[in-house]
């Protein structure tokens, strides 16, 4: 049986998040910055009367930040909800394969955030480890 994935794009690369991890996809409204928070935390935003922590995935991967996209998947980790700022959110797709190791290396930051590679109808995609994205570039030891 194949698993469902939410397809996203970060820095032009196709990536995937396990659909079971994603609570919803929201329209990102205003983002309220959190002074002194780590760089990959873009701030707080309100979703249906809750506040969410917004993660700038490009920064979490050590890439320069871009303009704010319109939609973001919401994930819940350790009782906190996060909105993931990615370049684009695409469809939900079924994978055509089990996650597999990528031949070679993803590159330092991608390596940390990736759990493997899956085949989809749109081609190969990196399966993203949400916890690693939220932890950000600082938690390299983990």
């Amino acid at each position: 049986m194949s698993t469902l994935y939410v397809m996203i794009e970060i820095d032009g690369r196709l990536a995937a998040i396990d659909a079971a991890d994603v609570q919803s996809v929201i329209e990102v409204g205003s983002i309220y910055p959190v002074p002194r928070a780590p760089g990959h935390i873009a701030g707080l935003t309100a979703m249906r009367s809750q506040s969410l922590t917004v993660i700038d995935c490009r920064k979490a991967l050590g890439l320069p930040s871009q303009t704010v996209p319109e939609r973001a998947p919401v994930v819940r980790v350790a009782d906190h909800s996060y909105a993931l700022m990615v370049d684009r959110v695409d469809d939900v797709l079924e994978s055509r394969s089990e996650p597999a190791a990528v031949p070679g290396n993803f590159g330092a930051d991608w390596q940390r955030a990736g759990r493997g590679m899956i085949e989809t109808d749109r081609g190969p995609a990196l399966l993203v480890n949400v916890e690693a994205l939220i932890a950000g570039p600082r938690a390299k030891a983990a």
Binding site: V34, R36, A37, P38, I41, Q50, S51, T53, A78, D79, H80, Y82, I134, A135, G136
Partner: peptide, 10 residues
């Protein structure tokens, strides 16, 4: 409400 751990660290 509690904040995400990364923000609490500040």
């Amino acid at each position: 409400k509690p904040l995400a751990p990364a923000i609490m660290q500040t």
